[in-house]
Each structure stands twice: as structure tokens, then as C-alpha cells.
Design a protein around this nucleic acid. Structure first.
Lengths: 128, 128
DNA sequence: ATTGACTTTTACGTAAACGTAAACTAAAAT
DNA sequence: ATTTTAGTTTACGTTTACGTAAAAGTCAAT
């Protein structure tokens, strides 16, 4: 296995090292350390970071993202745990679905407004 | 035409009056005033407020929302203005479309993870 | 007319999500 | 060997999006 340094990841995702350390502060990511204390990130850590950034783009808070990440934790073996996780996942899935529908409606509206503007432009060009 | 008071709108959207005044501070909404200085909101102001809140749910910043609202400004009569507005609108539309696609991918992933968890649960229940 | 609910401005406070600087150590390059 | 460059912690600063409180004016109801 090979590792990434913090600045490599920062460059790859175009974020600051401070941001990555901050995510660690908040418990979202947990890189291993070298003897001297340097952080080393695995592919999995990288994937988690990717998830975080995607979540952010969707307007989820770090706290929400934190919860969602725990969905991917494979340590949930017990039946009760599994059931809770599934219930939580179903709820989050519903939220995402609603958000998609909302966005699609917004898209529709923007398209109709644009169509209206284009029509106006046409008329203006007809005069000239 | 009839008007809404600030607290009426606040109640309707379940937000604080401070929030509404803050949107005004930032130039997102511009209610008229009574002689004594009270704010009065028209249906149109209400619609703008609705837009703002929806934008927020999508994770747009107030600054971005501000720009998007200007799309709905009907004061853009000049041809150049119209062209600029259309170009801006097309770009925003693209962003929204990308966001939808991104979200749909997330949805897929969540569904497959959930399917996996459900399968595990089934196996656990088979044992018992 | 007076109580109480509502509104106004001004202004300081706050949580989230980092930015930035200092002071220091380790690694890499010359 | 010694500069650079990259990394660490600690800690204070900053922006966004409001919350909250004070002081004063206004509207609605009894």
C-alpha cells in the first residue's frame, strides 16, 4: 500500500492542508502517523475526503456528513446496529431524493425564464 | 393589493424576522415602507423570499442567490443586458444540471450500500 | 388611555468552517 | 552541511448567516 501526504491530497482536491486537518479535528477522517508524527493517507482516506467534498457541494454540514460517513463504516455488525443504520440510510436517501426533485423543479423554472428572455431578445432583434 | 407584515412572512416560512431583515441588509429583498417606517411585503416580495429559502436548501450562498435573483429582474430591457442575462442564466442552469447529476450518482451509491446492508441483515436473520 | 404586542435601528454575540501566523521539527534538495 | 521545503501544534482572526438584547416608537385591543 502506498500513502498520500497531506499536501498531495490538498493539491489533488484543490483545498488547503488546513481544511484537511480541520476535517480531522472534527473526526471525519483519521490518517495514520509516521514515527515523527507526519500524517499519511490511504486510498480509503482519500475516498472519504472525496465524499466529504461532495457532501459539501450539496450543502450538507460537516456534522451531517459525519453521520453519513458512519454509514460506510463496516464495523456495524450487530443486528440492532444494522437495523439502525438501514433506517438512517433510508431517511437520508429520502432527503436526497427530495433534494433532487426540488432541484429539477428549479431547473424547469430557470429554463422557462430563459426561454422567455430568449423570446424577448428575438423580438428586439426583429426590430433592428 | 394587500401586504404582509414581517412577522406574517416569518411565520409563514418558519424563519425569524431577523433573518428577513438580514436578507434586506444584503440587498436580496426590498419591501416598501409605511409612513411610520414599517416594512410591507408584496406577493412578489414573498415569492422572492421563497426563492431565497429554496436556494439556501440547495447550499447556495446568499451571494449566489443574490445573483440568481437578478435573473428575475424585469428591468433588463437593453439588448446587451438581455444577452448577458441569458448567458449568466445558461451557466447557472448548467451548474444546477451538474448538481442534479451529482446527486443522482450519490443516490445510486446510497441505494447500493443500503442493498448491501439489507442483505447482511437477511443473513443474520437466517441464522437466528 | 393604557396595556400589550409588534416594529424599528443599533450593536454586540455566536457557531461553522476555515485562514493565517508563529514557533518549531523533519525531510528533501543543493 | 546547510538551505529549502514540507510538516506539526497552538492559537488567534475572519466571513457568513444569523441570534439576542436594548432602547424607543407604533399599532391593536380593552
Amino acid at each position: 500500500m502506498n500513502y498520500y501526504t497531506i499536501s498531495q491530497l490538498a493539491e489533488q482536491f484543490d483545498i488547503s492542508t488546513r481544511t484537511i486537518r480541520y476535517y480531522e479535528e472534527r473526526g471525519l477522517i483519521s490518517p495514520i502517523r509516521t514515527e515523527s508524527g507526519q500524517r499519511l493517507y490511504t486510498k480509503k482516506d482519500r475516498a472519504v475526503l472525496k465524499l466529504i467534498l461532495r457532501g459539501k457541494r450539496f450543502g450538507f454540514s460537516l456534522e451531517e456528513i459525519h453521520e453519513m460517513i458512519s454509514l460506510f463504516d463496516n464495523d456495524r455488525t450487530g443486528r440492532k446496529q444494522l437495523e439502525k443504520t438501514i433506517a438512517y440510510g433510508e431517511q437520508k436517501l429520502k432527503e436526497v431524493t427530495e433534494r433532487i426533485e426540488d432541484l429539477m423543479q428549479l431547473k424547469q423554472e430557470m429554463e422557462s425564464i430563459l426561454a422567455d428572455f430568449r423570446e424577448r431578445l428575438q423580438k428586439l432583434e426583429g426590430i433592428e
